[in-house]
Design a protein around this nucleic acid. Structure first.
Lengths: 334, 334
DNA sequence: TCCGGTTTTGAATACGTGTGCAAACGCTAC
DNA sequence: GTAGCGTTTGCACACGTATTCAAAACCGGA
């Protein structure tokens, strides 16, 4: 009604001082009598502490900035939701920014977060300019990278074991008897993309097999489908696709546009194990990225950093989930 | 380095008063000379205004709270992303909260937003307790509902024309010659779910057809699949599913688990036209919810409300997109 | 009753910025 | 040179809260 209701108003009504009110709501010690009086007055007036003013004086906003890039890959909504929940459980809120296309813009977004006095930042699958990283550091704002490495930046980061995963895929495809194996790679500008590709090539070469072709799909559906067509035309009988999001596009294109059968004509493996991979329509063999564990590790690292620690890089292992797109459980015994 | 760098520090270095610095950064008038001096000093010190302090004194945070519920329905990540971008273009930031399961929790989430002094709230597909709505109103914080109506609350709201859409679906299914038509309804606790169902039933009755069955699927994949099996077992040769998210589950279940053919044995229609509906693997006939327009209308309404206006309810019309799951373009001429 | 020690309380100050007000300034026209 | 007017500037205060410090209240024991 009459403007904002402040702690002073509550104090006046309760017949105590403003500091008493503050103490009651910030959990400091106060006698049972005043607590009671203050609570009652606050209730009657509908008082709620102004978080801004509190943050201004304490220097802590209890807000974590979360930058995220592509929400069309279902891996990220899932991760975002879990991150948000996990942070809420720790008493933090999340200021979410969807990073625009260009990379400079990512930096601008993070700068805006700093302006908002966030206590920390989680960058999901986006890089961080060196200058800005330095800026965060000098401002004492910890940054944790989620699902992307940035070796030169020396930041705490949580990824899955992408190299090992890529290698595991190669082993699996070889084990089920495929000989002409192609790779629709992820964006090679990202550590995840590079690592998966490297691991995969390592695995192939260990088996003495040369890849039929390795072409980046850049995490884009249209490009992935195009690349896949190219590879199967060159005779590939198996494809490792850099993430599930692209793998779905590849399967759609091969099966419904080109008329190929999966896995009979061509086996497909993805990466992430997003929920959709388990749907009957795709039944996609893939490497699971354990989102829950990754989120947990990320939040733990961030909290540690907020406590002054300096967590390092962390890799979470994920299993190969064998499904129909490579022949299913029948082949799993290999 | 040495703690925060404040406007006073900049003032000192530039040889002007703190107010001068404030004026330069808040766009007020200042002489070219001082602007130059202040800019230079700020640059050297790496100064950035503290948004919290600014908000505290101006009473405006330029932050919009966005509550969203289910991120696993791909409609919402998409909407969230667009909302976020649209708000950023207007100079606002979005404080995103993922609403937990229970309804009481939604209220708690909104309360927390109020604590953070958001300038406005967008509630995407979540209801709003009466008491809390009143609270927002008395606090002067405008609330706009996105993709959910709440007639009794008298709040500005943006939905698609769900009743008309449901009716259009009935017309289409009748037009392609289906006689035994079932409905896997959305959650009847939501206005969207109810309206679509009502419109659909209206359309059927206008055609003189009684539905083969109407069972709520509650926007959940597992339940939708279960319900769909039940309906086709009762002889349905067409199903209207309350949203695309459930429709995919229904198609997967019918085709890959039960071995039915779509659309030969059973025609399927969804609602939303999420990107996935156009994928070759589903090729789903559906009513398009024009997310772009809905987002635009929502932001416009919110801005208007921030300016003191009181926008009303708004319905955005969306076309029926005919695809393979009801026989495709061949039937579109009807 | 009085005293030492512990807890509670209120006054005052700080956080970093925007803004009203009056003084200082710059410029033009006489 | 000076009166006059519009613009710029600095001072002081405000926003709503947390927190320091000293004073006050309390409590149990002698």
């Amino acid at each position: 009604m009459s403007g904002r209701v402040t702690s002073r108003a509550v104090a006046e009504r309760a017949g105590v001082s403003q500091s008493a009110v503050s103490r009651v709501f910030s959990g400091a010690s106060a006698s049972a009598r005043t607590v009671e009086k203050v609570r009652k007055a606050a209730e009657e007036l509908g008082y709620r502490p102004n978080v801004l003013a509190r943050s201004l004086i304490t220097g802590r906003s209890r807000i974590i900035g979360v930058v995220v890039a592509y929400l069309d890959n279902p891996f990220y909504p899932d991760a975002l939701e879990r991150l948000s929940r996990a942070l809420q459980e720790e008493g933090y809120h999340s200021l979410v920014f969807i990073a625009p296309e260009g990379h400079n813009d990512t930096d601008r977004v993070i700068q805006q977060m700093l302006d908002h006095q966030v206590d920390g930042i989680i960058a999901a699958s986006v890089g961080l300019g060196d200058e800005l990283a330095a800026r965060c550091k000098s401002a004492g704002i910890p940054v944790v990278l989620f699902n992307r490495g940035q070796p030169e930046a020396n930041l705490p980061q949580v990824t899955s074991a992408n190299h090992a995963g890529g290698r595991r895929v190669a082993e699996h495809l070889v084990a089920i008897g495929r000989q002409r194996i192609g790779h629709v790679a992820g964006w090679q500008g990202s550590s995840t993309g590079r690592d998966r590709t490297e691991g995969f090539l390592t695995g192939l070469s260990e088996a003495g097999i040369a890849p039929t072709g390795v072409v980046p799909g850049d995490y884009r559906r249209d490009k992935a489908a195009e690349v896949a067509e190219e590879l199967v035309t060159q005779g590939a009988d198996a494809l490792f696709v850099g993430n599930d999001h692209m793998a779905f596009a590849v399967m759609d294109h091969l099966r419904f546009i080109m008329g190929w059968r999966v896995p009979e004509d061509v086996a497909i493996v993805g990466y992430d194990d997003v929920p959709m991979a388990a749907w009957a329509g795709y039944d996609l063999t893939t490497i699971r990225q354990p989102v829950g564990q990754m989120v947990e590790a990320t939040v733990t690292a961030l909290l540690a950093a907020l406590d002054g620690a300096t967590p390092g890089a962390q890799e979470i292992n994920g299993p190969l989930i064998i499904r129909g797109s490579t022949g299913g459980a029948a082949h799993a015994r290999i």
